[in-house]
């Protein structure tokens, strides 16, 4: 057993400096498309290439609805023309203005119930990474809990399937108030690639009052961490829409 203690000590500290400083290691985030100024014929071509309607035409180029992007890279790896691509991971934003973030009592101790309502496993895997030594979310006072009775935050991943509606409803109802819902991943936000069908809904927001939305397919661990910081009231939310500057439609939601 002493071997393991020594091994642990030798490994040293791996944790990211986020949120105090930015994480710059390569491969932490797949990035998202940026709003891009383009002539209208090119813009139309690019928008048609997007399979989930994340790109929208505006007067001066292409706007992006981050909630719909599934990282297919068709708008950036295709031939002819491309949109700009931006890295980063501070993507989470408020879904509605109704409830907002938690106040100070919850800021440093937040218990989170994760419910997978039918994702592909990638979002769930990224949530799992939050407990690995690189992200180590315990240091921020975030804890995963297996029971809704202890949970302050319901973290939902995945397109909501018909067969998970009842378990999700039961879990939400069993949580004490005040409570918040964080939806993570394109499937939970908009249905993603699966879309609305006989078995999947077009997002968890149709079924539960979602407070914070985390874009990405899957959102990288740092983006989920940002979402939790936002719901805890420790970080400002980002805009879920990216619009070409100076266009007439420039109003943050």
């Amino acid at each position: 057993m002493t071997n393991w203690v020594i091994k642990g000590l030798r490994t040293g500290v791996k944790s990211t400096r986020y949120p105090r400083a930015e994480e710059t290691a390569a491969g932490c985030s797949p990035g998202l498309p940026a709003a891009t100024r383009l002539p209208s014929d090119l813009a139309e071509m690019i928008v048609a290439r997007c399979p989930t309607g994340a790109l929208e035409r505006s007067l001066e180029g292409v706007d992006v609805d981050l909630r719909r992007c599934v990282h297919c890279f068709r708008c950036t790896r295709g031939s002819n023309c491309t949109v700009d691509w931006s890295g980063g991971y501070d993507w989470a934003g408020f879904a509605t203005e109704r409830t907002g973030a938690f106040g100070p009592p919850f800021g440093r101790s937040l218990h989170i119930l994760v419910v997978d309502t039918g994702d592909c496993g990638a979002c769930l895997s990224e949530v799992k990474q939050l407990n690995n030594p690189y992200y180590n979310m315990h240091r921020l006072g975030f804890f995963l809990t297996p029971t809704p009775r202890h949970a302050d935050v319901l973290l939902v991943v995945g397109a909501l399937t018909e067969q998970m509606r009842l378990p999700l409803r039961k879990a939400y109802d069993a949580m004490p108030t005040p409570k918040r819902v964080v939806a993570a991943g394109a499937c939970a936000l908009s249905g993603g690639v699966f879309g609305r069908s006989f078995i999947c809904s077009g997002g968890v927001g149709e079924f539960l009052p979602v407070d914070v939305e985390v874009p990405g397919n899957p959102p990288p661990p740092l983006a989920i961490l940002h979402g939790l910081m936002v719901v805890a009231g420790r970080k400002p939310p980002a805009s879920l829409y990216r619009r070409v500057e100076n266009s007439s439609a420039d109003e943050p939601r």
């Binding site: 490994t11 932490c28 797949p30 990035g31 297919c72 790896r77 990638a122 990224e126 990474q129 397919n217």
Partner: peptide
């Protein structure tokens, strides 16, 4: 083991642009 897993995710991300090799 989860340190190694995260490092492989980052290697995948840096090489192909996506941690889970989508796209």
């Amino acid at each position: 083991a989860s340190i190694l897993e995260e490092e492989l995710l980052r290697i995948s991300g840096a090489l192909t642009g996506h941690r889970y090799l989508f796209g």
